[in-house]
Structures are given as structure tokens and as C-alpha cells.
Design a protein around this nucleic acid. Structure first.
Lengths: 345, 345
DNA sequence: TTGGAATAGTTAAACGTTTAAGTTGTCCCG
DNA sequence: CGGGACAACTTAAACGTTTAACTATTCCAA
């Protein structure tokens, strides 16, 4: 580590360190000749200002903390790498970088946030998997620490977030199925305490009501965000008596939809013909399934970019114009729901 | 930001800042009574040492830079989130954190490394996608900057790396296929300049030779790491005349193997019966395919952990015992290759 | 001529730690 | 009783920047 400091440059150019700083940051007028001399010296020595010293003096870190909940062993998270990429690129454009830390459970996560906040490791946070009564939101808000969130918490909490309008998305999916001729539509819902799951369920209920269809209580199956639970829930659905057995299933995620696909297949059904299936996320693999899976695509890149720009505005003390943003997912129709359904029961 | 400093604590406890530092870091004997007083004061004020100041003084950052090449639009990278998680957790255990930055192209990546090195943004790097003649390795080595790499570069370059033994893995896959009765085995190889691809191809060639099978020149299909290229290559293979048409295909990645699966399906073949398929990576979705995909699992977690521990040893000036590590992938046999094959051509 | 303004540079403080070196004071041994 | 050893703290420098405040010079208008 050669580590050439501003003092070296100052000596080399025969000026004070202040002048070097002024020249290199362009923060004040400096005489032409001196300016050039400093520039040459800096170039010659390969000088770059040390970022830690600069940060200390500016009392900032130009780091944004981002934590995500790692997906369990054999499951997958179709969002995380795309999202991370988009926030990192957006941040880089403003000379910020992303400090990524996974946090396995909520409790550990909370203490990680508090610690990082106290020691000043980052200037702000990007939360994901935000939920109802989210402790992190509470802690950050009460400490007036800058952050943005991918996902809502409580409706009456005022903080910066962007979320995907799951209600509208699932509503659209339901309409699509209805338009295809389906009448008995089931929904794989996440457990009660999931905020996101709640909104998606609502879209389904709205859609059914709008179409004048009564929802059989068996059609809403609670299932965690796992392949296996999607699989098991589908088995329960297919075991219903003919008049009640759904002809279409909407899953709260693509991961669960895979379970639906395989459960249907193993039950001898042809997905697309006998059973329509729709997922959520539009994971890369959705298009590679057989049949290709209809799904709701989240505008992950746009979300990441806008979250970062909101956070940076906040960090710069600029007022954020839109403090809460609901983005629309887009339904990508593929073979798993592309066939018109005529009831044969 | 209340930002209570060591001076506040010193004042509160009626001692000098040095004493506070000694107490809190346990770096020197301090009288029992004073020690307790300082502790109480720190607790009362909620003091935590500012990390930037500490880093400046220690001239370190306790950050590890990690960059990855984002996967193109509709493809997926089954490794990145798992790997990121494992390095972040391992790093956290040693009080290091991960600074994650994606870099789209090689050139941009190199300058990002050089910049971060010069301004002292991180203490070391973790490289991935390391390749033959890798410029980053060259730059880092010549600057004596600490780093470790997931993947090899040139055989005669001495630096810290861990790689998966693709040759051994594909050799095992080939043996497995031979044991299942396959004689005409094809291989989807990555383009020439991919180091990793080269090693995997070698495993195939070794396996064929070991089994006394001559490799038809058509059986080695060059294809980039994309679904579509796997698909197209498979079409070419299936178009071969009966005696030459392979009964098994090994793909250099799961992503490509998906292309094989679907190309075979669309050609009316039943994978597992008519055509065996093996992928590489054991992506989460491999088990959810129909048929479930045989694949080579990389010990991603172990690799991440050990890479971090190697890097941290290096950072601490401790000699690293194993400077180059080749880890064995494990063949996970699933339905796509589980059936014994008897030639019917 | 004088003095206010503009220009061009320097000095030194500050950011918040850690730590080497220094200062007291006490104890104990020869 | 002198003085070395030790314990317990403090002082102040250092890490590498930025920047407010200061000095010195020149210029120009009143």
C-alpha cells in the first residue's frame, strides 16, 4: 500500500494541502498556473483522496445498507439479484455504494440495524420484506434515521416506500381467468400476518365479487411461500368434489405456482387445458416451465431505481415529491392460462 | 442524529477520552471503580464508537468488496444470492461487511476495482467469474492488494483462489451416464475463452476416453450460457442421423439444461427415457423440473465461508495454509438420468 | 492617496477515534 | 531514606481530509 496522501501532493506541487484540496475538488478559485501544477503533481503521484478521511470530515459514509432475508435451502428468490443490481447501479450513479447484509431472523435483523445506525456505518437503509407493525420501521422512524422501504407497513405510518399493487395485479389475473371462461377459481394465500399476502388475497376477492362469483370457502387455501405448500394445497383443491373443484388456481408466488403445476401434473391433469395456473413475480423460469407460466411481473428495476433516488433526496435534505408509490405489476399471459375454458363438469 | 462522541462519555464519567477508549476496548488496565463509572456513563448515553473515525485511525475499512456480473434479462443466476449470503455471514462473524457492486462489463469492472483500491474503500476483494488472463487478478496482484477469487485464472499465477473441480464433476456425470448404458453422449460446451467451460469439457473428454468411447465431433456443441443456446444446440443434436444422435446430453449449466429439456420435449422425446439430461449448478429449480433434473451441486456455502476466512487471514498477515483449493461438486441424480438406457436404434 | 474589493494563497481547526509517551502517586525493597 | 517498579490516568499526536478564517498582494474607484 503506497498510500499517497494529500500532503505528498502538496509537497510535490509546493503548495499547502488546502490548495490541493481546492484544486482537486474545484471548490474554490485557484490561479491557473498553480492549478495546473497541482493537477500534474496529483497525476504524477497517482493521488486519490482517501475515502475514510473524507467521510469522517463530511460525517457521512456514502453507503446504503440493504438487508434481505435469505431464501431457505431449496427455495429460490427470483427478485433479490435483480433488485440488488438495480439499487447498486442507481446508487453508483450518485456515488453511493451498497452494503449488503443478510439477516436470518427478525430479531437479529433489528439489532443489526440499530448497531449500524449507532456506529454510523451507513447513511441510510433500504428495507425489504416490510410487514405490518414492522419493528425496523418503528426503530428507524423514531431515531429519525433515513430509509426507504420496498413494501408497506401500517397504513397510517408516514415513511418513504414503494410497493407493488398486489391487489390490482391479482384483480387483473382474476379478470383474465374469468374472461377465459373460468368460474371456479382458487387462490393460494399466504398466512394471515403477511401484509403482502393480504393485499393479494384482496385482489382475488374483489375480482370474484366483480364477476358475481361466490367464493367457496375451500378455494382460499392458506399456504406458506414454499413449493411444498403450494403442492399440498393443490392436492387439497383437486380432492374437492367435482362441482367444487376449481378449474383455475392463482398462487401468491411463482414458487408456489410450481408446486401447483407439478401437483396437477401428477394428478394427471393437463395444465393449460384442465387447469389454469397463474403465479406472481414472473421469475425467469416462469417462461421455461411446461406449460410456460402466466405470472405477474413486478417492475423490480424501476422500483430499485426510484427507491434509491428517494433515499438520496432524503439524505440531501431535498423534499421527496412522492413519498408513497404504488406500482402496477403487469400480467404476462403464457400457456398455463392461455386456453379458453369451457366447463365440462 | 444525536451522535454522542467519546468526549461526551469522558465528560460524563469525569475522565479523559483515552481512559474511555481503554475501558471500552479493554486495551489496558483501568482501576475497577473508574472502569465501572465509564461503563455506566457509556451505557447511559448510549455511546457507540463511530466506525469511520475508528477506521481512519486504524487505516482499515472492515469492508470487503464483492462484484458480480449481473445475469442478462431473462436468464437466472442460481448462485449469486446463496454465495452472497454465505460470504456476508462469514464476514460478519469477523466483523467485516460486504460492499456489493455489480459490474456490467469487464472494462468498467476493472476501473471500479482500481478506483476502490486507490481511495481505500475496501480492505480486500472477492472476485467471481475469474477467467484466463483475468485483468483484475493482474491489477490486484501487481498492486499487492489483498483478494481471493472464486475461480482460477492462469495455472502459473500464484494467488488465493477456490474453484469447483468441473473436470471431476463432469467426469462423474459421464461415468454415471455410461453406467446407465449410454454410449452416445453429447456435451454442451461454453465458448473457447471460458476457463471454467474448458475444465468441464475436459471432464467429458476424460470420461469418454476412460469408457473407450469415441467422441463424434458433432457431439460437442459450443453454446453460450443461455437457455436459448442450449435449446438450439439440442435441436442440432437431435437432427443428427439415428446412429449418431446422442441418447444423453450433459450441459455446462442448469440454465442450458432447461433448454435441452424443452427442446427434447418439443421434439416429442421423453426425457429420462429417450434422452438423459444432466446440468451443472443444482439450481433450486432443478428439483422442480419435469422430470427433475440431475445436476452437479457446487458447495457454494463452503466456498463462500472458506474464501472469506482465507481473505481475512491474509488481511491479518497470517499465512494462509491452503492458497489454492479445488472443491468437489456432488452429482445429484434425479429422474432426468435415473433410468437405465438400452439402445433401441 | 486611500481604502474597499477582489484574488490567491496559507494556517489551523475540525471530524471522532486510538495510542504512544508522559505525569503522578504509591508501594516496596535494599 | 532513596529510588526503581508499578498502577492509574492524562496529554497530545496521529489517521487524511475539508474548510472557515486569516494574510498578503494587487487593483481600481473615489
Amino acid at each position: 500500500m503506497p498510500s499517497v496522501t494529500i500532503r505528498d501532493v502538496a509537497r510535490e506541487a509546493g503548495v499547502s494541502t488546502a490548495t490541493v484540496s481546492y484544486v482537486l475538488n474545484g471548490s474554490r478559485r485557484v490561479g491557473d498556473e498553480t492549478r495546473e501544477r497541482v493537477r500534474q503533481a496529483a497525476l504524477r503521484l497517482g493521488y486519490r483522496a482517501n475515502i475514510t478521511a473524507r467521510n469522517l470530515q463530511a460525517s457521512e459514509t456514502r453507503l446504503i445498507g440493504y438487508s434481505w432475508r435469505p431464501s431457505p435451502a431449496e427455495q429460490f428468490n427470483p427478485i433479490v439479484d435483480k433488485f440488488l443490481q438495480s439499487i447498486a447501479e442507481a446508487a453508483a450513479r450518485h456515488d453511493y455504494r451498497i452494503l449488503a447484509f443478510p439477516s436470518v431472523d427478525v430479531h437479529q435483523e433489528l439489532s443489526a440495524y440499530e448497531e449500524m445506525m449507532l456506529i454510523g456505518q451507513v447513511d441510510g437503509f433500504i428495507l425489504t420484506n416490510t410487514n405490518f407493525d414492522d419493528e425496523r420501521v418503528l426503530a428507524l422512524v423514531s431515531n429519525h434515521f433515513p430509509f426507504v422501504s420496498f413494501g408497506r407497513a401500517n397504513p397510517d405510518w408516514d415513511f418513504l416506500w414503494i410497493d407493488v399493487d398486489g391487489t390490482a395485479g391479482i384483480l387483473e389475473a382474476t379478470r383474465h381467468l374469468v374472461a377465459q371462461g373460468h368460474r371456479r377459481i382458487a387462490f393460494l394465500a399466504w398466512p394471515e400476518k403477511s401484509q403482502t399476502g393480504h393485499y393479494r388475497l384482496q385482489g382475488y376477492l374483489n375480482g370474484m365479487e366483480e364477476a358475481g362469483l361466490t367464493v367457496d370457502s375451500e378455494w382460499v387455501q392458506l399456504a406458506g411461500n414454499f413449493y411444498e405448500e403450494g403442492y399440498a394445497a393443490t392436492q387439497r383443491l383437486l380432492a374437492l368434489p367435482p362441482g367444487h373443484r376449481p378449474s383455475a388456481v392463482i398462487a401468491s408466488s411463482d414458487l408456489m405456482a410450481l408446486g401447483v403445476l407439478n401437483a396437477a401434473w401428477n394428478a394427471g391433469l393437463e395444465v393449460g387445458q384442465d387447469l389454469a395456473v397463474i403465479g406472481f413475480d414472473d421469475a425467469p423460469i416462469a417462461r421455461y416451465m411446461r406449460p410456460a407460466l402466466t405470472s405477474l411481473a413486478q417492475p423490480v428495476n424501476r422500483i430499485g431505481e426510484q427507491l434509491v433516488s428517494m433515499l438520496i433526496d432524503e439524505l440531501n435534505g431535498q423534499p421527496v415529491e412522492e413519498r408513497q408509490v404504488l406500482m402496477q405489476p403487469t400480467l404476462v399471459v403464457r400457456a398455463s392460462s392461455a386456453t379458453r375454458y369451457s366447463d365440462r363438469s
